[in-house]
Each structure stands twice: as C-alpha cells, then as structure tokens.
C-alpha cells in the first residue's frame, strides 16, 4: 500500500448526523493518486454521507481528513475548491445555460471577481471539452442534450475546476448500459492519463469490479472493507455486503442470481458462445444443468440447425423453438 502516494487521507474518522449514533466510525482511509476508487454498499449504508464528509460539506463527528498534506477543516472554501471538485447525483443543468457557459462555471475559483475568463482559463475549458469529447455540442443548451451527454458535460465542469481530486456521487445512475460503460471508461482514463484521483459511489457492482483500482465497501454492519476488487470478491466481503435473502452470489462472475427452485434437470453438451447463451435460456426458464439427465441438448455452432434435442433427436433453428419444445415435453 505504501507504494502508492495518498492524496487524501482520513484517520480515525467518525461520520454521521448525531454524535451519539455515528453512521461509520474508526475509518482510516487513503485515496491513492491517479487511481479510480469505487465506494460500494447497499442503500442506506452511508456512501453519500461518507462522500459529503470527505469533501467537507458535512462536518465529521471526529477524526481528521487531510488533503495533499493540508487539514481539510483549515482550508478556505476557495482553497478547497482548487483541491477537490464534485459531481452530484441530482440533475442540475439549468436549461438556459450553454454547455460552454456551464463548463466555464468550473473556473469559479480562478476567474476574476466578475467571472471574466483569462486565456489560461479558456485553455483549461478547451481541454476539459476535449477529454470528455463534448466539443461537438459546446453551443447547445444543456437541456438539449441526452442524459449521457449531460453527464459528460457535468464531469467536464468538474475537470475545468482543475483539481487533483474528483468526487462523484452516483454518476452512472439513470444511464443506459453503453453510456454507463462510457462514463466508467472516461473516469478510468482521467485517472490513468491525467493523473486524477477519483472517488465515486456507485450501485453498478459489475462495472465497479471491472474498472476500479480500489474498492471501498461498506457492509450492512457499517464496517468498511478496502482492497482491490478481486480480493474483495475472493474473501467474500462483496457477497456479505450485498447478501440478500433468496439471492445467490456467483463468485466466477461476481454477480447475484436467483437460485433455481424447480427440478427440471437437463444435460447440456457443447462449448463457446452458443453454449453460454443456451445455458442462460435454460436457467432463466427454471431448468437446472445436470451431468447425466434423461434429456440432453447438443449445441454445435457450425450446424445449420445448431440445437439437437435427445432422446427425440429433433433439431432447432432458434433457441425459442428449442424452448417451446422443451416446455411442451415437461408439461405433458
């Protein structure tokens, strides 16, 4: 751990809204420079509260937070704004601002008292537009953008603030899958290529486990686990934190599934992508895979009709046809 330089440290931190009942306590945290850290945890475990405490919007109950060696509590609002920028969940984006004007607001701590932009300010804004790939709609009004585009603009505004540390609260909420991946990718790139230290809360476990350099995980007992994502999967911390009655955790894919409750054994023989999707179809429809079942399905990708059902010997063009056949067999 000491190999990494920490830009933000918290020691013996207790946070929450009432001194008698801290939400999280005895926290010792290090945010590594140039890394993407994901803060995970079920609803109500205190993710956002921790984020708000670490950036000084909420006073910690006890303990110390240091950012780049400075005590956070002793920094002025302006000094803080040059160290740390924020992206919140709630949809901001006043419609009457252009994308450029919105991003230019990020220069607030640097610009003159009238908010006039210097050449240096403009260069930073142009850079923020470029890395977030938002240059194309610089003159659009923010309400004309798609959710994903708007989220990028909001991130560009944080970049324009030119801070070593960026905090994001659920930046991928309400976004569709490709856009979510795009945003994660952007954040990862900002950490790697621009050296930003990024802390984000998220509910998207799969993406976080694939992209995060570090994971901070808050479990239901309000304990915080730290580590690289794979370690937290292997030591069972992820499973425990999100454990839910009636859900099974699959360590191979790090995803939660509803267990099969019916007993309709089928043997599936084959490999590759066709095999994988056939398996999905069967599991989704309440069949369970068994070694030596009476019903067998042979999957051969190269065949015109890739699916063969034994013992009947009938062949199928699509999974849907196979499924209909299986269902009628099991119902009669």
């Amino acid at each position: 751990m000491s190999l990494f330089k920490s830009i933000l440290t918290a020691s013996n931190l207790a946070i929450g809204y009432a001194k008698a009942k801290p939400l999280l306590s005895s926290l010792n945290l290090n945010l590594h420079e140039g890394e993407l850290t994901c803060l995970l945890g079920a609803n109500g475990t205190g993710k956002s509260t921790l984020l708000r405490s670490l950036c000084g919007l909420l006073k910690p109950l006890s303990g110390a937070i240091k950012i780049d060696g400075h005590e956070l509590a002793t920094l002025s609002a302006k000094q803080k704004a040059k160290m740390l920028s924020l992206v919140f969940t709630q949809n901001i984006a006043p419609g009457n601002l252009t994308v450029y004007a919105m991003i230019a607001l990020g220069r607030f701590p640097y610009s003159s008292w009238m908010g006039t932009l210097s050449e240096a300010d403009k260069a930073v804004i142009d850079w923020a537009l470029e890395v977030t790939e938002t240059t194309a709609f610089v003159n659009k009004h923010t309400d004309e953008l798609s959710d994903g585009e708007r989220q990028k603009v909001v991130i560009a505004r944080a970049l324009a603030q030119d801070t070593p540390v960026i905090f994001l609260d659920e930046p991928t909420a309400h976004l569709d899958l490709p856009t979510r991946i795009e945003i994660f990718d952007l954040l990862k790139r900002l950490a790697k290529e621009e050296g930003k230290s990024i802390l984000m809360t998220t509910h998207h476990l799969d993406l976080a486990l694939h992209q995060a350099d570090q994971v901070w995980l808050i479990d239901r007992q309000h304990r915080l686990h730290k580590g690289i994502p794979e370690d937290l999967v292997l030591n069972g911390a992820i499973e425990k934190a999100f454990a839910h009655e009636g859900l099974l955790f699959e360590k191979t894919t790090a995803s939660f599934k509803k267990p099969n409750t019916t007993n309709k054994p089928i043997t599936l023989i084959g490999e590759g992508i066709y095999f994988q999707w056939t398996k999905n179809t069967l599991e989704r429809n309440g069949f369970s895979l068994a070694e030596e079942a009476k019903t067998k399905i042979y999957v051969t990708e190269e065949h015109v009709k890739p699916w063969r059902l034994e013992p009947t010997g009938s062949e199928f063009n699509t999974l849907e046809q196979l499924l209909i056949s299986l269902k009628t067999t099991y119902e009669t």
């Binding site: 040059k82 740390l84 924020l86 006043p94 607001l105």
Partner: peptide, 22 residues
C-alpha cells in the same frame, strides 16, 4: 453587479456553488 459571478454559481445549486469555493 458584484454578485453576478456568485449568482451564476448558484444556478447549479448550493452544493455545487459551495464546492466551487463560494
């Protein structure tokens, strides 16, 4: 006129304005 920069920051909401040093 002196408040125009602060008012612009407030367009994004108080949390953002504060995070930008207001």
């Amino acid at each position: 006129f002196f408040t125009s920069k602060s008012l612009n920051a407030l367009l994004l909401g108080e949390d953002y304005a504060e995070s930008m040093g207001l």
